[in-house]
Design a binder for these strands. Sequence first.
DNA 1: AGTCATCACTCGTAAGGACAAGTGACGTCA
DNA 2: TGACGTCACTTGTCCTTACGAGTGATGACT
Lengths: 259, 259
Amino acid sequence: MSEIQRPGALYQQVAAAIREAILSGEFAPDSLLPSEAQLMTRYAVSRPTVRNAIAALRTEGLIDVRHGKGSFVRSSGQPTLTLERRISRTREGKFVMPTGDIWQEAEEPHTYRTRTTKSTGRLLQLGEEEALFGCDRLLIDPGTGTRAMHRTLIPFEVAEAVPLLGEEPCKPAAAVYWVLAQAGHNLTWTETVRAHMPLPDERAALQLPDATPVLHVARVAHDADERPLMLEELRFGADRAELAYRITADKQPARRTRP
Amino acid sequence: MSEIQRPGALYQQVAAAIREAILSGEFAPDSLLPSEAQLMTRYAVSRPTVRNAIAALRTEGLIDVRHGKGSFVRSSGQPTLTLERRISRTREGKFVMPTGDIWQEAEEPHTYRTRTTKSTGRLLQLGEEEALFGCDRLLIDPGTGTRAMHRTLIPFEVAEAVPLLGEEPCKPAAAVYWVLAQAGHNLTWTETVRAHMPLPDERAALQLPDATPVLHVARVAHDADERPLMLEELRFGADRAELAYRITADKQPARRTRP
DNA sequence: AGTCATCACTCGTAAGGACAAGTGACGTCA
DNA sequence: TGACGTCACTTGTCCTTACGAGTGATGACT
């Protein structure tokens, strides 16, 4: 019986009505929305129109639809996992990362050889088609069930200069840093954060619900002269985890890294 | 004429076929896909099925559809803007942020009073329903046209203790930091990064295309005793900009901030 | 009492038709 | 030649119909 007229298409009016009801709390989180049939009579529209409205709310991430059960208001809970992107050194000089403890490997790591893409080449300051060692892992946090895809990329050039690396390039990142430091490198890191919608394979591997973006962190390890040594990538569903950084003020105005 | 059978639904088979053609480069970026009518005859399916397949590719962010023109392969270009989340201090003690130079205000800032939500309360380590000053800005980078929503939240309690703040709580963030430092606070910051799908108002304000997540950074300024003083939030389309952080190794293993 | 078939409800898939609305090119008319 | 109307093409919206498939409760049969 609710009546509407304002905006454009019918299905958008229906979607707007349901959206308001959700945001105003009229439909509580995790509660069941009216069925398609009920919405049809409620707004006096056909089933495609109702389904179109529901599809819009799905892509906004407002609702979850379960086959045979109905549509549920998504509980917009905060991410349960906070990934602190910090790196520490023990007195023995080993590297420790707060995330190192929590992840477990869901599968055997997969090692391979590949070449730089436009994206990874830019981060590593290499041309395209440069040879790299790659290592992919699928990680799980047993506490929350959060999944993440992890990738390590090391240029041939770097691995060859550090014998311990060439033998076994698929170590955990902290171990690689240790080896690089032993080889005389003075490490700092730059992280780049992006978000994108998952492709079907990412959706499956990370077990993502509808309308869930992927957060993508690329951590580049630099030598003291700012030349990149390796790349570490992490991807996970933005519904499960968030990133945390600590910032302190530089003493002098730093100059731009990209002039 | 392309024939397929494997996975589940018809429209998913069609979507998979087009997706492969795009990812393999058969359909180049920015090129025009076959029209719905052509796809109907190509795969011998009805128009709803074709539209369903296209809708799937839209939510994956693979294509853009323009009314009256057709479907175009989205050029998955890297973000054009890199936001370096760094804070420096000049010799006079003023705060300088690399992003400070680029943004222009698209509208007058909007000042208001509000209360903590569950989300902002957690970040500011306050209960719910605590009083805050708020200030919203819509920012534009004239170089790339990138838009961003900026928000500053300052607890009453903090503003009252710092007279210069209470008078004009809607200063630029760097100026607020300066005032806080003048009042004797020793500032450090913690940033939290998340991503989510935009609601219609965010989509409109940021002028986002389909299937574009919003990156959300929350920067909390802490006093030396780790107590939060204020919150600065920034949101923007993940297709236009990325975040960059610099990390150096702590000398000792830092203890967790959230025990 | 326990097991299992049935049924009624949900959403998912697929087809058909019809018309509206945006876009650009072509051709006519002044 | 120039301006403008028309037309063919595109996607957008909306309806009707039909059946498949997942879920849970009900009830009958063993």
